[in-house]
Design a protein around this nucleic acid. Structure first.
Lengths: 201, 201, 201, 201
DNA sequence: TATGAATGAGAGTTCATTCAT
DNA sequence: CATGAATGAACTCTCATTCAT
C-alpha cells in the first residue's frame, strides 16, 4: 500500500499536488484543466498522458490523501495497550497536523462532494472514510469500556471530534498566534473533558 | 431589515430557494443558470429579470440565510440575565435546528467559498459571520466571567462549537435514529462538560 | 407529414441546408460545427439554439431528404392502373431528378453511414429506406405479375436500379453533355431491357 | 509493379489492412491514429515509423486496392479474341468478387472522397480509376463494334455497371441467401439484356 | 414577465504529430 | 522498433449574459 502510493512518476505526483491545491482554493468545478496545466507549466493536452480525465485527478487526490492519513493512524486499530486517552491525544495531533500541514490539499478528504466520482471510485473513498471513523470510534469505545470515558455515543463523539479537527482549515493561519500543537491540545482537552466521567455537579 | 427579507416577490423568493438547493447539492460553480431555470420551470433569460447575474443569486442566498439565523439569535447579544449555560443550550438548539431544518440550503452560510463574491458583498457576508461569532463568543465570555465556565479561549470554543453544529449537515439524516433535539442535546452536553470548571483529576 | 416538414423556422431550414451541403462535400466527421456556423454566418454556439447536437443535424438532414423523396414517390404504392413499365419510367425520372437537383445534399440519403445516429433515429431512417425499397420493388413485382417484366428477383432489381440512380451524383455534372432526362432515359431503357421478357437468343 | 505491392514489411501490411477496415467502417476522418494503433496493438507514435502521416495511410490503402484489382483485370485491355459478352461476364465476376471478398476494405476504391489526398497522390488514384473505366469501356466498345451489343453510350454503361457492382457492399451479407456468384450472374444478365440488340417489341 | 436568438469566452477532451530515449 | 511525454490546434459543446420582442 505504501509502495502503491509512491509508484507514481514524479511528474504525475507533482500534477496531483498542483491540482489538489487548486481544487482546494477554487473548488473542483471552478478549476479548469487549463488552470492545472498552467500551474504545471505544461499544456492541457499533456495532462491526459497521465490521467484519463478530470474526475480521475480528483479521485487520485482524494485517494492519496486518504491513504496517507490512514497510514499514520492505522496502528491505533489494534492498540490495546496504550491508554485510550493517550491514544485520543495522539490521534488528534496526528490528524490535525496532517490536515493543517497539507492544509491546502487535505480538506478534500472530508468535505469534497463525491457526486462527481464514478460509482467505483466513490466506493473506494467512502471505504477510507469509514476506516477513519472506525479507528477513531474504536479508541472512544475502548475508553468507554475501560471506564476512562463516560458512557456516551461513540459514533457521535467521533463525528464531532472529526468536525472540529477538519474545520480548522477554514480559520487556521500559520501566521496566527496559535501553533498546530496549541490547537491540538485545545481540542484534546475540550474533548477529553467532554468525555470525562467526572462531570460538573 | 426584517422587512427587507420579506420584500421580495414570491417568484424571486422561489428562485432563491431553488438556486440555494442546487448550490448546496452541486456547488456554486457546477450549478448553471440553465440548471436553475429548469428547476424554476422557466428559461434562463428570465432569471435576469430578477437578478443581475449569477453572483447576485449566490449573495442573496447567503445573505437571506444569514439574516434569518441572526434574527433568531441576536437576542442573546444583550441577554445578561439568563444563565450562560442555558443561553448556550438554546443557542445550540436554535442554530442546529436552523442548519438541519433548512439543511439543503443552509450549509452555504458557513462553507461556501466567498471568493466569487464582489468585494462589497463579501464584506456583508463576513460581517454577518462575525456577528454570529460575536454572539456565541459573548455567551462563552459571560460564562467565563460568571465562573460558570472554566478559563478557556472563548474564540477557540466558539469555532469548535460552530464546527460541530455546521458539519452535522454532512451526516445527519432525518430518517436516522437521532432527532435534531437529540443531537443538540449531545453537542450541548459535550461542550458544556468540556467547559466545566471541575475537570477530571 | 408535409406540414411537419415545413414547420421549421426558416433559419433552422437554412442551417439544415447548409449543413447538408457540407456533409456531402466533406463528410459528416470532417465537417465541424465551426464550418457549419461559418456558412450560416453565425457563431457555433447559436446552432445549439436550434439543434441539440451535431448528430441531430445529420439526422434531420437525412430525415427531411427522405421524406421529400417519399412524398414524391408514394403514389406509386397503390397505383395498379398505370402500366408498370410506365411507372418505372416515372419513378426513375423522379428519383434521379431529386438526386441530381438536390445533388449537393441528397447523396446523404443513401450513402451516409448511419452508425453515428442514435438507435431511435437510425430506426427512422431505415424505415424510410425500407419504404423506398418497398415502393420500387412493388412496381417491379406488379410488372412481373402482369407479365410485362420477366420472372426476376424483384429485390435484386430494386437494389441495382437504385444503385445506378444514386451513384450518378458521383460523376454527373450539370455542365456535361447529358441532361438529367438523358440519363434517366438511359437508365430506364437499360433497366427495361434487363427486365424484358424477350431475351437475346 | 507487382513487386512494389509485395515489398512492404508484414507489419506495414498488417497496419494497412487494419487501417483500411477502420476507414471503411467509420470513415477516414472519424478514424483516429489512436484507433488504428489500438487495432494494431501498438502506440500511435509507432505508426509513424511506417508512414509519414495519416493521409499516406489512406493513399496506400487506396493504391494497393486499386493495383490489386487492376492486376486482375488488365488482361482484358488487349483481349480481342474472347467474345465481348464473355469478357463482360468475367469482368463482373472478378470485380464483384474483389469487392465483396475484401468487402470491408475495398469500398474505399470507389467511394472515398479524394479531397484529403495530396495533389500528387490524388492523381495516381484517379489514374487507376481511369484505367478501370477504360478497361470496362473497352469491353463494351468492342462488343458494340462486333455487333454483340447494341449501339449505346459505352461510358454510361460503364458507369452504371460499376455502380451496381460497387454498391453491393452496402447490402451484401455473406450469410444471406445469394452467393457472390449468384449476384454476379444476376448483374451480368441484367446488363447483358440492357446491352442486347434485340429489344422487346 | 417571459423568451428565442445571438454571442464571446471557455469548458473538457481529442487530434495528428514530434522527438528523445 | 517502440514508446512516453509533449504540444498546438481543433474538436463538440456549455457557459453567463444580452437584447429585441
Amino acid at each position: 500500500m505504501t509502495t502503491e502510493l509512491k509508484n507514481k512518476s514524479p511528474q504525475k505526483e507533482k500534477m496531483l499536488e498542483n491540482a489538489s491545491t487548486l481544487f482546494w482554493k477554487k473548488g473542483y468545478s471552478a478549476t479548469s484543466m487549463r488552470d492545472i496545466a498552467k500551474v504545471c507549466k505544461c499544456k492541457p493536452a499533456n495532462i491526459y498522458n497521465f490521467f484519463h480525465n478530470k474526475e480521475e485527478i480528483l479521485f487520485e487526490c482524494l485517494y492519496t490523501q486518504n491513504k496517507r492519513l490512514l497510514e499514520k493512524i492505522k496502528h491505533f486499530e489494534d492498540d490495546r495497550i496504550t491508554k485510550p486517552s493517550e491514544q485520543l491525544r495522539e490521534f488528534i495531533i496526528i490528524h490535525l497536523s496532517h490536515v493543517l500541514r497539507y492544509s491546502k490539499t487535505s480538506r478534500l478528504l472530508f468535505d469534497t462532494g463525491l457526486e462527481r466520482l464514478s460509482r467505483n471510485n466513490r466506493r473506494k473513498v467512502i471505504n477510507d472514510r469509514d476506516a477513519y471513523d472506525r479507528i477513531l470510534a474504536g479508541i472512544i469505545q475502548r475508553g468507554i469500556e475501560s471506564k476512562d470515558f463516560s458512557e456516551i455515543d461513540a459514533k457521535l463523539v467521533t463525528r464531532n471530534i472529526a468536525s472540529m479537527i477538519v474545520r480548522t482549515v477554514i480559520w487556521y493561519s500559520p501566521k496566527g498566534q496559535l501553533s498546530i500543537n496549541d490547537i491540538a491540545e485545545f481540542i484534546y482537552n475540550f474533548s477529553l473533558n467532554g468525555l470525562s466521567k467526572e462531570r460538573k455537579k
